[in-house]
Every structure is written in structure tokens, then in C-alpha cells.
Design a binder for these strands. Structure first.
Lengths: 198, 198
DNA sequence: ACCGAAGTGGATATGCAATATCCGCTTATG
DNA sequence: CATAAGCGGATATTGCATATCCACTTCGGT
């Protein structure tokens, strides 16, 4: 066992959880560019306390999001079991983007980023891989256009994300509308998506 | 005439043009967050020279982009004369986004931004307004879904922009594909966009 | 050719914001 | 109660962008 199990003092453990909870909230609201000072203050703790447990912001972000992202990957993998691959993909994307909609930090993490931890990177790859399988199967089932690729996943997610970043006009979130629009367009159309005559 | 016409010395005028040219290139390549030092160096000039002509970065950016943006607005207005409003809107968006595709600074300016000059803001409004007219006319012509609004323009542009910001996989720019996909989805479908049975 | 105004360069002052540390004090725990 | 662990938050450090200043150069009219 090279793994250290320092066995934190009770109060320390309590503060560790407080830190994580605060980080979740702050990152969700203001994104990953929020400072550890912000997080500490929001948790009612000193900065030093936060830095004692997490060497830097990236470590804290990973602690906060690794699980959440992994859940999403699990959902993607589970989607592979669905009968209708197109519908499974649609449902998965809606589910995953719903998470992103309420969490700006998660959104930033999902996007292609340079400063990501190895773990986050792998998880993201896994998600995309599952989506790729779904696309292939949907095409075999004749429900998805043949020119769709795994390469389309990242742009689609980026596009929907960008709508979420827009200053929301009303209370409603218009991203579902656009996701539906795009996915709808990727189906095999009734008349092979014929253009208007003129 | 409260307008000053300082009549620049020949070399000064030359350097002013050099500055603008350099700014165009640097902003296009690296976006508006490039520093005036970058611009000056790229122009082969000292920072002081740049600051002598343009009080700050925003002024320089406006000098660089005001014309370009105004051209886009003119194009939008011209599009109102088209017979087929849907097609005119499609062509305009493709044209405008083509400009954005090769100019990161323009892209950032087109997006909703806080630090924009009054002039830029008005121009953007004008563009959106023209798009709104096109949408209304297309609906009257029965070529566009009735639930489309002017409010859809900003998200659409944002979505396509976000694709452009993605690290380009190959040499090809996939944004046209997505723009076509989205606009296609906004047409009135042959069978009123019926969902698949299952 | 000369001279004053205009222009130039770029080192550097200024300001700001985020990161991370340090250490005197407090608290948990055996 | 002893002591190791933990805490707080002022502050050092770093990094970056903005903008200025002024000794020096160049232009252009006479």
C-alpha cells in the first residue's frame, strides 16, 4: 500500500467536506476561474485550511468533478444497452447537457481544455467513445445519416454549451430546443432531407 | 466643425496605417485579448507610437473593425431586397460567418460583449434587426417555421462561432455543415417535421 | 541649412488579481 | 494535560497588461 491514509482529525474531515461543498457551489455558479480564496470564504474557512487539503485549484476541481464526470460516463455506457441507438444517444446527450446546464464549472471541464488532469481526460474520451458506438449502431439501424461521425459529438456539445453561456433572456433554457433541432437534422430524413426547389 | 483634422506628418500617417494593418493581423490571429505591445511589435513600431494615435485598445479595435462590421450590416440590409427571404437569410449568415471564420477578433466582437463601443453595439443591433425582418418575411412566404424568432439569431451565431473556436481537426472548416443543419431545421418541413413513429 | 514642432522607442511605473506560504494561535484527542 | 494536528488570513510572490515619460530623431517649412 503506497496509498497514504492520514486519518484526518474529525474537525479537519468536517472542513474538508465543507470545502468540497463550497467548491461545488462556487464552481457551478462562477466557473473554474473562481479563486480558492472565494471557495474558502464561501465555506467560512481560511484560505490556509483549503490549501492544507488541496495543493491547488486543479486538485480541488478534480476532487469535485471526477465523480460527476464518471457518472456521466457510466450513463453513456449504460445507454449502449438501449434498443434504439438514436434515441439512446439523444437521451444521453440531453441528460449530460442537463448536468452542464446547471454547472458552469462542469461545462468548462467538458470542453476541450489544456489544464485537465489525466483522469478527466480519459473519462471524456470514454464518453465520446460510447457516443461513437451509438452513432454507428444508429446508422446500422437506419435512423441516422451516414455522414455523421464521432467527430460531430464535440462540436455539438460545444454548440449547446455556447447557448448556455449566453445571457439568458427569460427563465427558460433554450438549449433543449437547439439540441432537438440539431439531432433532428442528423436523423435520416423521410425524403433524404431534400432541398427546396427554388 | 468641432472635428479636429490634425493633418498628420507623412511618417506619422504611414505608421498609423502600419499600426492598423498589424492590429488587423494580430487581432485576427489571436483575438482582442492581444496586447497593444504585441500589435506594436508586429508592426515594427514602439509601444509609444501606437498609444500616440490610439488612446487604448478599444479605440484601436473600433478603428479596425467598425468598417468591417458596417459592411456586414450593409450586406444584411441588402439581403432584405431578395425575393426568397429564407434563402437571403441563409446566404447572409453564411457570408457574415465566413468573415468571422477567418478573424478571431471579429468573432469576439460579434458575440455579446460588455466592453463594446456604442457604435459597434448599434451596428450589431442593426444586423439583428435586418435578420428579424428576413425571418418575418420568410414566415409570410411559408418557408420558415413559425416558432422562429429574432431571438434565435444570437444563439445560432454563438453556436457556429463556438465550432470555429474548436481546435480544427483537419484543414476543412466544419461550421458550414452545422449552419446548414440548423437552418435546414428551421425550414417548414415537407411533412411538418414529423417525428419517427417509434 | 536650420530650427521648432511633431513624432518615436521602449524601459519602466502602475495597477491589479491570483496563487501560495508562513506562523502565531486554537483545538482535538489519547 | 500534553502535543500533534489543524486553522486563519495577512501578506509575499508572481505574472501580466496598461499606459506614461522623456531623451532622442525626423520632418518640413523657410
Amino acid at each position: 500500500m503506497s496509498e497514504e491514509t492520514p486519518v484526518l482529525r474529525r474537525d479537519a474531515e468536517h472542513n474538508r467536506r465543507r470545502t468540497l461543498a463550497a467548491a461545488r457551489e462556487v464552481f457551478a455558479a462562477r466557473g473554474l476561474q473562481a479563486t480558492l480564496n472565494d471557495v474558502a470564504h464561501h465555506a467560512g474557512l481560511g484560505v490556509g485550511t483549503v490549501y492544507r487539503r488541496f495543493p491547488n485549484k486543479e486538485a480541488l476541481a478534480e476532487a469535485v468533478y471526477a465523480g460527476k464526470l464518471d457518472d456521466i460516463r457510466a450513463t453513456a455506457q449504460a445507454a449502449l444497452a438501449g434498443r434504439d441507438a438514436y434515441e439512446a444517444l439523444r437521451a444521453f446527450l440531453e441528460h449530460a447537457l442537463e448536468q452542464a446546464a446547471t454547472d458552469r464549472g462542469l461545462r468548462e471541464l467538458i470542453r476541450q481544455g489544456t489544464s485537465d488532469s489525466e483522469r478527466i481526460l480519459r473519462t471524456r474520451e470514454g464518453i465520446v467513445e460510447s457516443c461513437g458506438h451509438l452513432i454507428t449502431r444508429a446508422q446500422e439501424q437506419g435512423t441516422m445519416r451516414d455522414d455523421v461521425t464521432v467527430e460531430d459529438i464535440a462540436p455539438i456539445v460545444a454548440m449547446i454549451d455556447s447557448v448556455m453561456d449566453l445571457p439568458a433572456a427569460g427563465a427558460v433554457q433554450p438549449w433543449r430546443r437547439y439540441l432537438a433541432l440539431i439531432l433532428d437534422g442528423l436523423q435520416t430524413g423521410p425524403d433524404h432531407r431534400g432541398r427546396r426547389s427554388s
